[in-house]
Amino acid sequence: MEIKLSQTFIAVDDHDKALGFYRDVLGLEVRNDVAYEGMRWVTVGSPSQPDVAIVLEPPIADPNVSDADRQAAAELLAKGLLRGVNFAVDDVDATFERIQAAGADVLQEPMDQFYGVRDCAFRDPAGNELRFAQPKGA
Rank of each mutant, 00 (worst) to 15 (best):
Y115L: 05
K79I: 06
G20P: 09
D14I: 00
Q134G: 12
D13V: 00
R40Y: 02
P47G: 09
G103F: 02
A35S: 15
C120Y: 00
P58S: 01
E75N: 07
V25Q: 10
P50C: 11
F87H: 11
F21G: 06
D62W: 08
I54S: 05
A102N: 08
P59E: 11
R123W: 04
N128I: 13
P47H: 08
A126D: 04
V55T: 12
E57W: 00
P110F: 04
Q100T: 11
A78F: 02
Q108Y: 05
A121I: 00
P58K: 00
R118D: 13
D14P: 00
M39V: 03
A121C: 07
A133E: 15
L5P: 05
E75R: 08
L76I: 01
D119V: 01
P135V: 15
G20L: 09
V30K: 13
V44T: 04
A35C: 12
A126R: 06
D33W: 04
A126N: 07
S6V: 14
K4E: 12
D13Y: 00
S66E: 08
K4Q: 14
A61R: 02
Q134C: 13
L81A: 10
D62Y: 05
N128K: 12
G27L: 06
V34Q: 12
D105G: 00
A126F: 01
M39T: 01
Y22F: 13
A94I: 13
R98D: 10
D67T: 10
W41Y: 00
L77N: 06
Y22T: 01
D69A: 15
S48C: 09
A11K: 01
W41C: 02
I10C: 05
V106R: 03
R98S: 13
D13P: 00
V92W: 04
R118M: 15
D119R: 11
V42D: 01
F96D: 05
F122Y: 03
A88P: 02
A53D: 12
R118Y: 12
V117R: 14
A94G: 14
R123H: 12
P50R: 10
F21N: 09
I10K: 00
Q49Y: 04
R118K: 15
R123S: 10
Y36I: 14
G103R: 06
A68I: 05
L5T: 11
A101E: 07
Y115M: 06
E29W: 03
L82M: 15
L26E: 05
P135H: 14
D91K: 11
Y36N: 14
E97K: 12
V89A: 10
N32C: 05
K4M: 14
Q100H: 12
G127Q: 07
D91E: 09
M39P: 07
S46A: 14
P63Q: 03
N86S: 15
E109G: 12
R98T: 14
L81G: 04
D69Y: 10
N32T: 03
K17H: 07
N128Q: 13
P59R: 04
L82Y: 03
M1P: 02
D105C: 07
E75F: 01
V52G: 02
E2P: 05
E75D: 15
G137W: 09
Q100V: 09
V44R: 04
S46I: 01
A133D: 13
D33L: 06
R98K: 15
A126E: 03
D62T: 07
L76G: 04
